[in-house]
């Protein structure tokens, strides 16, 4: 049974070896491959940490205990998981000669960081950057050219890969000090900025849509004013109804709505 150790008391190399970092990074990209409803990313986390374990001489008992430590429930934001994985590798390296990381210590570090980064990731990535990029892509698509959209996709992919590479190294370098990183005010500034960008870009797309509703009403056989009014109502409807439906249901509901409107406002109805 390994003993508890004071955080940061044991020595470990300041950086991850490049080969190990590449191997962990590649597996980090597939963190969610075996996502399941019971333990979520547990197997993904274990697979990410495996290159570190494989770099050591085989010891079935040590391997068994290592797997047991990381087979439990784990869930965090995939873009920020590098910080947690890097931190765990640092802790494991520090405790390598002292019988390995105690299970409780690994659990507390893993679970508390995973929760904090999941919450941060929800706000920054899922509610901030993802809609921002989606709407920026839509604005680029308004030009009618495909390549700017693909270019944006490639740039975002490259950017997030670079971010995840950096997160892994930063997590390892910080170890226990990663907790301090969570208090950085830049996270919250970035979240606020991304949400502001969402509002501006959504407004931009709405303005473009209204303009083309005015111009393109002939395409749907309605008067320009009526078509614009319908688009304004559609823009306001979710806020009035206050129900959050999946987009697929919005599209299907639109089919029914369109049928009614075409009869009411179209050439035969008007």
């Amino acid at each position: 049974m390994s003993e508890a150790v004071r955080p940061g008391a044991l020595a470990a190399p300041a950086r991850l070896a490049v080969g190990l970092r590449v191997a962990v990074f590649a597996r980090l990209l597939a963190l969610q491959a075996s996502w399941n409803h019971q333990r979520m990313q547990n197997l993904g986390l274990l697979v990410c940490l495996m290159p570190w374990l494989r770099a050591r001489p085989r010891d079935p008992e040590r391997d068994r205990l290592f797997c047991r430590r990381y087979f439990e429930f784990f869930n965090t934001n995939p873009y920020l998981a590098g910080y947690v994985v890097g931190g765990l590798l640092r802790l494991e390296t520090e405790r390598e000669d002292a019988g390995g990381l105690p299970r409780g210590q690994a659990q507390v570090f893993r679970d508390s960081l995973a929760r904090a980064f999941a919450s941060l990731g929800d706000q920054l990535f899922w509610l901030g950057l993802r809609p921002t990029v989606a709407l920026a892509g839509c604005v680029l698509a308004l030009t009618g050219q495909a390549w700017p959209v693909v270019g944006l996709g490639a740039a975002v992919a490259a950017g997030q890969l670079a971010w995840r590479w950096h997160a892994l190294g930063r997590g390892y370098a910080a170890g226990y000090d990663i907790v301090g990183l969570l208090g950085d005010p830049r996270w919250h500034r970035a979240i606020a900025g991304a949400k502001r960008a969402v509002r501006v870009l959504a407004g931009l797309a709405a303005g473009w849509l209204l303009r083309h509703a005015w111009e393109g009403s002939a395409q749907v056989g309605a008067a320009p004013g009526a078509f614009v009014a319908v688009v304004v109502v559609a823009l306001a409807l979710p806020a009035v109804v206050r129900r959050r439906w999946a987009g697929e249901f919005l599209v299907l509901a639109t089919g029914l709505l369109a049928l009614l409107l075409a009869f009411a406002l179209g050439p035969k109805g008007s």
Binding site: R199, V220, A236, A239, G247, A258
Partner: peptide, 14 residues
């Protein structure tokens, strides 16, 4: 047009 408007409406709602 309406699907796009409803989608943008959902953004404004959130």
């Amino acid at each position: 047009v309406l699907a796009a408007a409803l989608g943008l409406g959902a953004v404004f709602e959130r």
